[in-house]
Every structure is written in structure tokens, then in C-alpha cells.
Design a protein around this nucleic acid. Structure first.
Length: 433
RNA sequence: GUGGCUGUAGCUUAGCGGUAAAGCACCGCUCUGUGGCAGCGGGGACCGAGGGUUCGAAUCCCUCCAGCCACCCCA
């Protein structure tokens, strides 16, 4: 067999292990998310991690180079063209259609959690395998749905201990009014198009809405008098947007109107929003990226072959949230409860008896810890101490023969020799105090 | 996919052409059945990988890989 190469044995670029030390964060977030989403009657759905490439081709589209450049596409032995899912909405919409959920009472509200894959160049908060929690609502066109979705996402982040969140919101109209706006943008840039940066020149041709969020000083200057999308919304879209804002006011959720917030894809309509963490100048890893983003996509269900169904949703980047929780030093509940007793043994007979004792404690719901591989009393006590365990039970050859066990309170060092058949009750009592 | 910076033990880092170091962590001894403190000792790194220059490379050069950052893109 050829020698193992170190490079072959590392995790793929942009994909990492979620180690035990980080698990409490994952549990914490998932627990909160499922509790909150459950409260608002969202039902969990899991969809396959791979889907037909055609699904994403159709939803995410040919408009950008996403499919070619940033998706994991492959052909199966049977010849199917499949892709690792790059996002959740398309899969959920597919499942909604395929399972005939359109006959269920609406709105149909679904949520999901899982890994997603994008062939990006990784950096902090941006990985090739990443995780999202998402929520989608089908069949309700009302602005209250948009506001409620934003409210839930906000509450979720807030309940995790993230303060000073900013909700950025905008409306990008729909197919009846957006074309006029795009035309106005084109007109605006007709004479100015030569002065913008090279990136924007490209954007003007391919994805003109994207010139709105260019950060180049010169481009910003040129965009000073740029047409505002709100002025181009038709009456329905304008009323819808106004309603969303009114509902947000009603639940006292602060937001920031951001006329430069856009979405590149055609199926998006009306409301788009993002939730950002507080901007901090001095933070070491200043995470300037949205934690959650979403919007309305009234055309996607029919685009994917389902009945015309209005829908809206959001997705939240779990890794980003965890990075932020760490940066903010938010305290997370421990994954495992701290063991209550440590069982130390000396000698073969004692080892056998203490194994039984260990099992007794476990059966009665008292978390016990032991290190059967270590034979010296010293190292066992050291381990017990390192775990910060309150009581250590010591059983040596003598105790094993006498049917007793030593109970040592670690803080004080006080020891008592007690009958082995009473020990469980005694420890139970002591732990109650 | 492009460019910049970085890569030495599990972790944090020193060394920057001449025998691979330190702190933390781990294991042990002082203490033969008693932890925390202290002292002493031990294991653990072919210096990210591969190649080149050189009498000699962790150190210089090239290629690759990975991380971070900035782009492209951001569903």
C-alpha cells in the first residue's frame, strides 16, 4: 500500500469538523430555533442533500454564473445529473409541489435545518459546507406574512443573546413594475456608464440592480441621484410594502429602509430583507455580513411547475451566528451536565465491584464518571478534580472485601467509610442539598 | 476562478542558512491507598506537502495544499 499522504488526509477545503467543544453552540441554536418556530406553527421538513441539477438551474437560473461556478454538480453511475443543494428554498418548494401540499390549509409553514454546499473560496463565516436554518411560508400574499417572518427571525436571533440587530428592508417590486425601474436605471447610466468602475460596467449589462450596492466611492458619487425603486413601484406593490412596514411598526420592530438592498434573481418580488449584527470598529473579527436574509418569492412555485402560490421565507447562516456568539462572548448552556460523582478503584476485585456501582448510579439518573484504565488512586483523584466533580467514591481491595466504600468530598477532603448498599441513597441525599 | 498575507508539538508562539525551543495541555516521579500547590522528569514536530539551490535549509527559490483577507459571486 502506498504511503499515506498528509494532504490527502485533511478535510476538503472549506469544510470542517464540528468538534465536541462547539456542539453546545449547535444544540443551543437548534433548540431555540425549533422552540420558536414551533410556537409559530412552522413544521419541520428535511429534504435530500442532493437534488436534480435541473431544479436549481430552473430556480437559481441561468442569469448568473452560480450554477456553473459555484455548485457541486455530478453525474451518477445511472446518468442522473445531480447537485449538492446550494440553498434550501428550491428544495422546499419542490417538496411542497411534489407532495401536493397545495391542498393543505394555507398558509403552509415549513422550516428546515441542514448542510448546504457552495463551491466558493472560503473565509471566516463563508464555507463550502455550511448550515442554514430556514423558514418558508406558502399561500399567503398578505403583508402580515412578510412582517411575521421578519419578526420571527429577529426574535430568534435576539433570543440567542444577540443584541443591537439591524433589520434592513426594501421592496424590489414585481414583474409588472420592476422592468420600468430597470429601464430608468439604464437611462440614468446611459451617459454615466463610462465613468463607473469596471465591475459596474459588467453589472450594467448583466445584473443592473447590483450596481446599487457597489462600494466604490466614485460609483457611489455617480449614483447620488439614482432613481429610487419606491418611486417606481406600482400601486399594489407600494401598498404591500407600506403594509409590511406598518405591521413592523405595530410589533415595534425597528428597521432600516435600504433602497440599495436588492436580489439578483428574477423570481424574487416585493419584500427583501436582511438582518445584520451591530457594526463594531474595534472587534477583532468584525463580521460584516448578514446573519439572515430573505424575502418574498411569489413566482417561484409556479416557475417550478406548481400552482400559482405566493410565498416568502428566510434563511439564517448558523456558522455566522456561532462566530458572532463567540465574539460577543454569549454564554451557552453546557452540553453535558457535570458529572456528580467520580468512582475510583484500586485492584481487580474493586474494579469489578465499582463497575457495578457505576451502573447503579447511572440507572438512578446520577451522572457518574470513572477512569477504569487508570490504576493509581492518585491519577484517578486528579481526573476527578479536573472534572470539578463534587464527590469521589473510593473503593480499594479492603473496601471491596468489607462491602464498604469511601465517600470523599473533594472541596473539604473529608472522607467517610460507608456501607456499599447504602451509598446510592446517601449520595442522592447529599446531592439534594 | 483571481490577487495579497500566513502556515514550527494538541494549543499559543520563539528560532529566520549550521545539533528544532518555550509556555499551556498530556503522562509520570517526589508522595509504595488520596487530587488541587510546588519541584523534577517524560512522551509528542521528518518545522503544511513536494521539489530545487547549498558542504549544510524550519530559514533562500519554485510548485502544490490549507487558513485568513480582498475580489468574482452571494441563491
Amino acid at each position: 500500500m502506498p504511503k499515506v499522504k498528509k494532504q490527502d488526509m485533511q478535510s476538503p477545503k472549506g469544510m470542517k469538523d464540528i468538534l465536541p467543544a462547539d456542539q453546545p453552540y449547535w444544540q443551543y441554536i437548534l433548540k431555540k430555533a425549533s422552540a420558536i418556530l414551533d410556537d409559530y406553527s412552522f413544521h419541520k421538513i428535511d429534504t435530500p442533500i442532493v437534488e436534480q441539477t435541473a431544479l436549481f438551474l430552473r430556480s437559481v437560473g441561468e442569469s448568473t454564473d452560480i450554477v456553473d461556478k459555484e455548485m457541486y454538480n455530478f453525474k451518477t453511475k445511472g446518468g442522473d445529473e445531480l447537485s449538492l443543494r446550494p440553498e434550501g428554498t428550491a428544495s422546499v418548494v419542490r417538496a411542497y409541489i411534489e407532495n401536493g401540499m397545495n391542498v393543505m390549509p394555507h398558509p403552509v409553514q415549513l422550516w428546515y435545518f441542514g448542510p448546504f454546499f457552495r463551491h466558493d473560496n472560503p473565509q471566516a463565516g463563508r464555507y463550502r459546507q455550511f448550515h442554514q436554518i430556514g423558514a418558508e411560508s406558502f399561500g399567503d400574499e398578505n403583508a402580515a406574512t412578510d412582517a411575521m417572518l421578519i419578526f420571527i427571525a429577529y426574535k430568534l436571533l435576539e433570543s440567542l443573546g444577540i443584541k443591537n440587530l439591524t433589520v434592513r428592508i426594501n421592496s424590489i417590486g414585481d414583474s409588472s413594475c420592476r422592468p420600468q425601474y430597470i429601464k430608468a436605471l439604464k437611462d440614468y447610466y446611459r451617459n454615466r456608464g463610462k465613468k463607473v468602475c469596471t465591475k459596474c460596467k459588467k453589472r450594467l449589462k448583466t445584473n443592473i440592480l447590483r450596481v446599487l450596492d457597489c462600494e466604490e466611492e466614485n460609483c457611489k458619487e455617480i449614483a447620488k441621484d439614482i432613481p429610487q425603486i419606491v418611486d417606481y413601484l406600482d400601486d399594489d406593490c407600494k401598498a404591500h410594502f407600506k403594509n409590511v412596514l406598518e405591521f413592523l411598526d405595530e410589533v415595534k420592530l425597528p428597521y432600516l429602509l435600504d433602497s440599495r438592498l436588492v436580489r439578483g434573481l428574477d423570481y424574487y418580488s416585493r419584500t427583501v430583507f436582511e438582518i445584520w449584527p451591530e457594526e463594531k470598529e474595534d472587534a477583532k473579527n468584525n463580521l460584516q455580513m448578514a446573519l439572515c436574509s430573505g424575502g418574498r418569492y411569489d413566482k417561484l412555485v409556479s416557475l417550478l411547475g406548481g400552482p400559482k402560490t405566493p410565498a416568502a421565507g428566510w434563511a439564517l447562516g448558523v456558522e455566522r451566528v456561532i462566530l458572532l456568539l463567540k465574539e460577543l462572548e454569549v454564554s451557552i448552556p453546557e452540553h453535558h451536565a457535570r458529572p456528580k460523582v467520580f468512582i475510583a478503584q484500586l485492584g481487580e476485585l474493586a474494579k469489578r465491584k465499582s463497575l457495578k456501582l457505576f451502573e447503579e448510579f447511572r440507572k438512578h439518573g446520577i451522572l457518574a464518571k470513572a477512569s477504569f484504565g487508570r490504576d493509581s488512586i492518585k491519577s484517578q483523584l486528579r481526573i476527578s478534580n479536573r472534572w470539578g466533580i463534587k464527590y469521589t467514591l473510593i473503593m480499594g481491595q479492603k473496601e471491596a472485601l468489607d462491602g464498604t466504600v469511601i465517600l470523599r468530598e473533594m472541596d473539604s477532603g473529608i472522607q467517610e467509610t460507608l456501607a456499599i448498599d447504602k451509598i446510592l441513597d446517601i449520595v442522592k441525599q447529599r446531592l439534594k442539598k
